[in-house]
Structures are given as structure tokens and as C-alpha cells.
Amino acid sequence: MELSAVGRMIKARRNAIGLTQQHLAKLAKLSRQTVQTLEAGTIKDLGFERLSRLLSVLGLGFDNLSLTAQLKKQDLWRVAKNCL
């Protein structure tokens, strides 16, 4: 999976749980600029450790299916919650 796709998933998850880029960056021990460039798809390389910290903070994993499934689950939960 390309970093630009990972960045889109990270942005969607971050928004879904209500974190700002600054707060996510602080929790993952990264700069806000790193989070911003990842989400924008303009970062060239992030490295395993930094990406791992970001995913961990968001409750995500490296498995592509896991990332997609978790985001879909979150969306379904949100829709169900709004129906109540």
C-alpha cells in the first residue's frame, strides 16, 4: 500500500475519533508537519517506527484489510448510532 493511501486512512480515522493533527502528532511523538504531509500524500518516506506509532495511537494495524475493515466498522457504527 502506498503512503498516500495510508495517509488518507489515517486522516479518516483521526477525524472519526476527533483528534487534531497537533494532538495526534503529540501522542505519536511526531511533528504536526509530519502528520500533515502524510495526510496530504506529499511525504516521501516515513519509516516503520514512526508509522507504527501513528497507527498504534489510532488503534490501527499494518494489515491492509485490517485498516479498511476498521474504518468501515467505524462508519457503520456511526450510521447505526445516528439511527437511534
Rank of each mutant, 00 (worst) to 15 (best):
S4C: 04
A5D: 14
V6P: 05
V6E: 01
G7M: 03
R8Q: 13
R8W: 07
M9R: 14
I10D: 00
R13P: 04
R14Y: 08
N15C: 03
I17N: 11
T20H: 07
Q21H: 08
H23R: 15
L24R: 02
K26Y: 09
K26F: 10
K26C: 10
L27Q: 15
K29M: 10
L30H: 04
S31W: 01
S31T: 10
R32A: 08
Q33Y: 00
Q33I: 04
Q33K: 04
T37Y: 13
A40L: 13
I43L: 14
I43D: 01
I43Q: 08
I43A: 09
I43E: 06
K44L: 09
K44Q: 10
K44V: 04
K44E: 11
D45I: 12
G47F: 04
E49Q: 14
L51P: 04
R53T: 12
R53L: 11
R53D: 13
R53P: 08
L55R: 06
L55T: 02
G59A: 02
G59S: 02
L60Y: 04
F62C: 03
F62L: 11
S66F: 12
A69I: 05
Q70D: 12
Q70I: 06
L71D: 05
L71M: 02
K73D: 13
D75A: 13
L76H: 13
R78G: 05
A80I: 07
K81S: 11
N82Y: 07
N82H: 13
C83W: 10
C83V: 14
C83S: 11
L84I: 13
L84W: 15
